[in-house]
């Protein structure tokens, strides 16, 4: 069976500095992997490479069997990424951001119902017509989650998704990730909270100085 996410001989160097030493791995459907490690270990670099925001120095990445660079459209249709510091358009409200992504991903069927449910769950419904630059840090992160959840995906990547969230939202995220796993998604998230591995019954990967230790 084709893994949902597969990286082969993946590395990222800044001149001679190995932000991500060469590594290969695969994540299957119905699987959650929690990536831990100290600051500067290379967790974000790995997630940025997997989400095509950072060009790897070497290696290939496949999402649902499609190469991220040679079959970019098919691969990206199956991928969702939540960065730790999301950025938004100044001219679009939160609702219009969701609408734009739903349209771009051909996920406009039933958009309003889905958007209403997601925003309601994340306590953003009342603030849907506000511009995100008026949001607090936690609200901006919640909107990043909402933008990932508004379209279908096979692989979900999250960079420290619970770092700025209130306890209610953290609980929602954990429940949602379990639901998504049950529905067949492959999830890779970075976190500084080791307890999350047990809570999610997840695989645990550890990174330090650019070296990825699988199933730590």
């Amino acid at each position: 069976m084709t893994p949902a996410l597969e990286a082969r001989q993946l590395s990222r160097y800044y001149d001679r500095y190995a932000a991500l030493a060469e590594t290969s791995f695969a994540i299957s459907a119905n699987e959650i992997v929690v990536l831990t490690g100290p600051n500067g270990a290379g967790k974000s670099t790995l997630l940025l490479c997997l989400s095509s925001l950072l060009l790897p120095t070497s290696g290939t990445i496949q999402v649902g069997g499609y190469d991220l660079y040679n079959d970019e459209v098919e691969a990206k249709k199956r991928l969702a990424f939540v960065p730790d510091v999301p950025r938004y358009y100044s001219e679009l409200t939160a609702w219009e951001h969701l609408q734009f992504l739903a349209l771009a991903y051909h996920a406009d069927q039933g958009f309003e119902t889905r958007a209403k449910e997601i925003l309601g769950d994340l306590n953003l419904w009342e603030a849907r017509d506000l511009y995100p630059h008026n949001y607090s840090r936690g609200m901006r992160l919640k909107l990043g989650l909402a933008l990932a959840l508004i379209h279908p995906f096979q692989v979900l990547l999250l960079d420290e998704p619970t770092s700025a969230l209130d306890p209610q939202a953290v609980a929602y995220v954990k429940d949602k990730l379990r639901d998504l796993r049950a529905q067949g998604a492959a999830i890779l998230l970075s976190s500084h909270d080791p307890a999350i591995v047990q809570e999610m019954h997840a695989r645990h990967w550890h990174m330090d100085r650019g070296i990825l230790e699988l199933d730590a």
């Binding site: 100044s90 679009l92 734009f100 771009a104 051909h106 017509d129 511009y131």
Partner: peptide
């Protein structure tokens, strides 16, 4: 950001899926 103030009602122009979503966003912007 000063001009836009806090928020706005949803943009009335209906969008089209795919690459045309970019055009929809550009018109809105």
């Amino acid at each position: 950001k000063q001009r836009l103030k806090s928020g706005s009602r949803p943009f009335p122009l209906p969008g089209r899926p795919g690459a045309l979503a970019l055009s929809w966003k550009q018109i809105l912007q």
